[in-house]
């Protein structure tokens, strides 16, 4: 405990020494770079955006430890830049026990495009949905009729 106050001035000096001169003169430099970012969008089955959902990004090096955490905006969108590390990145969205995972492959070549491995929202169109639902329902009705018929016979 007693040693800390002695160290403090030294630390402050070191910090001051490291500040660039330009900053003392109130100059500001703005750099803008185009980077390769990932846009994650969460939607419920009804098409509504998952606004304010919790996002956790996992880097390829450690798929168990979160690399970055955040929240989707009002449109259910979250942006991040997978800087450097090539390999399979994972993004998880969750809100009230709903959500899912998406995986994307980041190639070592920075000019190559990112590849979405899993998690593409393949929501069926209303027509597809109706046809699939009708098939299952007809299967159930058929089963019911079959058993009713054998019973009667």
């Amino acid at each position: 405990m007693s040693k800390r106050p002695d160290r403090l001035p030294i630390l402050l000096l070191a910090l001051l020494a490291s500040v660039p001169e330009t900053a003392l003169g109130h100059a500001a430099f703005v750099e803008a770079d185009a980077v390769r970012a990932v846009r994650v969008e969460g939607r419920y089955a009804t098409g509504e955006p998952m606004a304010g959902a919790q996002v956790t990004v996992f880097a390829p090096a450690d798929p168990a430890e979160p690399w970055r955490q955040g929240q989707t905006d009002a449109d259910g969108v979250f942006l991040f830049v997978p800087d450097g590390e090539p390999g399979r990145w994972a993004v998880r969205l969750r809100q009230a026990g709903h959500g899912g995972m998406a995986h994307l492959d980041v190639p070592a070549d920075t000019a190559a495009p990112l590849v979405l491995a899993t998690g593409r929202a393949a929501a069926p169109s209303p027509v597809q949905k109706t046809v699939m639902a009708a098939c299952v329902i007809w299967g159930c009705i058929g089963t019911a009729l079959y058993f009713r018929r054998t019973r009667a016979g």
């Binding site: 329902i137 159930c140 009705i141 089963t143 019911a144 058993f147 009713r148 054998t150 019973r151």
Partner: peptide, 12 residues
């Protein structure tokens, strides 16, 4: 088997 038709319909 008597419950099967009802079970199938309610599954739907």
């Amino acid at each position: 088997g008597a419950l099967v038709p009802r079970a199938a319909l309610l599954a739907a």
